[in-house]
Amino acid sequence: MLVAALAVLFALAPAGPGLADSAKGIGSPGIGSPAIDLPADVPPVRFGGPEALEIATRGGVRSFDVELAVDEAQRARGLMYRRSLPAGRGMLFDFGAERDVAMWMQNTYVSLDMVFIRSDGRIARVAERATPLSTATISSGEPVRFVLELPAGTARALGIAAGDQVAHRLIGR
């Protein structure tokens, strides 16, 4: 499930826990079996997951299955080159420590909502409907540890907003 996503535009910190061994590889049927069309010179990247993630909103708890991007290669690739991202799916980026984060949509064919999350799981900011293939940076606006990418329109449709609480095994530890 490689929805074309964001490349990270800052110096990445030490890699997070290695989850690649349990990951779905490029070309294998990942979340929703999306079409992936990697250019010949682009190596495949394996991601962790999918795993359950929940967001407590004013309207109730929202559940997702997310792939994990925890090391430098995974974070740099993100959802690039993917042609779809099904509802209820996403990718959680873990940067290992709180920092200012800037993302972009280069080589990302599907519009995304980006949810910027502090170490304690509180949502700091939601950037809705990022423009596919854009190299414009999308900033966290403050130090965050995580970014959750979801299909465009998900945040508005489900009432996901700043201040909501995200629960996942990597968050809050």
Rank of each mutant, 00 (worst) to 15 (best):
P39T: 12
P43A: 00
V45A: 05
V45C: 03
F47Q: 08
F47E: 01
G48W: 02
G49D: 11
E51I: 12
A52M: 05
A52D: 09
A56T: 11
R58F: 03
R58K: 11
G59S: 15
G60V: 05
R62I: 13
D65P: 04
D65L: 13
V70T: 03
D71S: 07
D71K: 06
E72S: 14
R75L: 02
R77Y: 11
L79N: 07
M80Q: 15
Y81K: 06
Y81E: 04
R82E: 07
S84V: 04
G88K: 01
G90K: 14
D94E: 09
A97L: 05
E98C: 09
R99I: 07
V101I: 13
A102W: 14
M103G: 01
W104V: 03
Q106H: 15
Y109N: 00
V110M: 08
S111I: 02
M114W: 05
V115A: 14
I117N: 06
I117A: 11
I117M: 04
R118D: 14
G121V: 05
R122V: 06
R125F: 02
A127M: 02
A127Y: 05
T131R: 15
T131M: 12
T131K: 05
P132I: 00
P132Y: 00
P132N: 04
L133C: 07
T135R: 15
T135P: 06
A136Q: 10
T137D: 05
I138W: 01
I138C: 10
I138R: 13
S140P: 12
P143G: 01
P143H: 04
V144G: 00
R145N: 07
G153E: 03
